[in-house]
């Protein structure tokens, strides 16, 4: 299981309408990116983290497991902002770059937390079949649904193949490692197409007419949640503008 997907099914907001959670977390995300990072990103990041750990009940361990790899990229990507090139000397530390680098890191961390707020509370199985309401063609959402269903089986296959290779000393040298990795790649290809063929046969036997109908559980939209979201977003915008003007 992927940490975010497992978290989404275990979260307390699991049964809320995906639209509510999208409004809240993607609203926060848009506000984070659009407002000046100081103090807008700080407010949004704190709000997202508090919502994650508080009402949504996503464990701190899951949040840390999910954010630590993107954090590395965020920090590495900010390093070029600290140096200036092309002057004399050609490469020099630029003290003026500290502020934009800090703003960039702050905004990116806040945005990451907003993304995690959505991803760790909303299973994709609830989102994908509803995407056609946003104008995505049904054929595309159906393909995305098949990708979602197949990828967990394939990830499990890779895990099993990797374990079998490790037991047979498949990762002892660079040479064997590459051979083993190629084996994993080829195994996923063969299994993905084999699964697709079997699905094809199974569907044909059940009268497949070109449409994959999936039952989507009806979830009512909570007006209180939507209202609270709008108040929170408006509050953050107003507070940020107040601090910036002061």
């Amino acid at each position: 299981m992927l940490a975010l997907d497992a978290g989404a099914y275990a979260s307390r907001w699991r049964h809320r309408h995906p639209g509510e959670k999208a409004l809240l977390s993607l609203g926060l995300l848009v506000v984070t990116v659009a407002l000046p990072p100081w103090p807008g990103a700080l407010f949004c990041g704190v709000a997202a983290l508090a919502l994650l750990l508080g009402p949504a009940r996503v464990g701190a361990r899951i949040v840390w497991r999910v954010v630590r790899i993107p954090l590395g990229f965020i920090l590495a990507g900010a390093v070029p902002l600290l140096v200036a090139v092309g002057g004399d000397p050609w490469l020099a530390l630029d003290p003026a770059g500290l502020r934009p680098a800090a703003e960039l890191v702050g905004r990116a961390i806040a945005a990451l937390l907003c993304l995690v707020l959505f991803a760790a509370t909303t299973p994709l199985a609830d989102v994908v079949p509803r995407l056609h309401r946003l104008g995505v063609p049904p054929a595309v959402t159906e393909i995305a649904g098949i990708v979602y269903r197949l990828l967990f089986q394939l990830l499990e296959s890779v895990r099993v193949v990797r374990e079998a290779q490790a037991i047979r000393l498949g990762f002892r040298t660079w040479r064997t490692t590459y051979r083993s990795l190629a084996g994993q790649g080829a195994a996923i290809f063969v299994r993905a197409f084999d699964r697709a063929r079997r699905l094809e046969q199974g569907l044909a036997a059940r009268g497949y007419d070109g449409e994959l109908r999936v039952q989507v559980a009806a979830q009512p939209v909570s007006r209180a949640f939507v209202a609270a979201t709008l108040v929170l977003l408006a509050g953050i915008v107003a507070l940020t503008l107040l601090v910036v003007r002061a």
Binding site: E142, I146, R149, L150, L151, A192, A196, R197
Partner: peptide
Amino acid sequence: KLLLGAAGAFSF
């Protein structure tokens, strides 16, 4: 549709 789904899952 199923083959394209397989191709997408393979890429992921």
